[in-house]
Design a protein around this nucleic acid. Structure first.
Lengths: 142, 142
DNA sequence: ATTATTACTTGCAAAATGCAAGTAGAATGT
DNA sequence: ACATTCTACTTGCATTTTGCAAGTAATAAT
């Protein structure tokens, strides 16, 4: 069974509404893997350095699917696999993700990183490129 | 005792780092109250519609203080009260908050709201005005 | 036919949360 | 002065969520 509650509260503020969706330890990690790492498979998500456990991963993929933030298709070569991908709603989170990255870099970051430097100095280009990567996968696979 | 873990993992990605800080159900609610509602007192945070419980609120205020995202002073008229306020790090979260609001509005929102319309149509002005409100409280009280 | 992959489930211990009640100190009322 | 009320927390305990390890069922590979 799913361990998350469905959204019941009426006329919530958008922040509270967002927290119903992404207000936990794992959801944004999964979205990060899909958005920036180009991952699509259950097994690939498990390889993320944060070591998400299989039950939580299964639960969050189910939740994100039911919310329409991700969707999936059967793997064309392997029936045991699903290919998860970000819907437009999921892709729309990129601006949130980028602002989070910039905030951490500006105020909390320790180690400097050339990847972050690039995001910082070419933010709109980075966003467009990321969207384009996602889109070209979609065109090839959906 | 605090119920949160301190940040141990080395060279984490910024998203994971952010989740250590704001990856729970309540932290951003508290920040929302401070940032947009101009609240500063423990008792005021308790009045938020999400009904945070006192132990969680105390825990998160402690955590946010220890991370330097908020700070507090004694209430000048009442020694039983503290006045919590956002530091620069906390104020820096405004861009994240606004992107979250815009994402929810664009993809998940149900009821239209004039406040959100304003944020959407005058985003930079809204951000500046919010920062100015915070700053003028600080000048008066710190 | 056997073994290995793969996505997911299950069971259980540990941690986080939610609720209600308590506490200590300062403010307020009489 | 004394009792009452406020206020920010703390505590105890039940419930929920998480984390870990071990399955399982279906497909794929050998």
């Amino acid at each position: 069974m799913n361990t998350y509650k469905s959204h019941v509260e009426k006329s919530e503020c958008p922040i509270a509404h967002a927290l119903d969706v992404i207000g936990d330890r794992w959801t944004l990690i999964i979205i990060r893997e899909m958005m920036f790492m180009g991952k699509h498979e259950f097994g690939e998500f498990l390889e993320a350095p944060e070591k998400i456990s299989t039950n939580i991963l299964a639960d969050r993929l189910k939740k994100l699917s039911s919310l329409g933030i991700i969707d999936f298709i059967e793997h064309p070569q392997n029936k045991t696999k699903k290919l998860y991908y970000l819907t437009d709603i999921g892709v729309g989170l990129i601006d949130v993700m980028v602002e989070v990255i910039l905030w951490v870099d500006k105020y909390l970051s320790t180690a400097p990183s050339p990847i972050i430097e690039n995001i910082k100095n070419h933010t709109p280009e980075f966003i467009e490129k990321t969207k384009k990567n996602i889109q070209s996968w979609n065109e090839k696979n959906l």
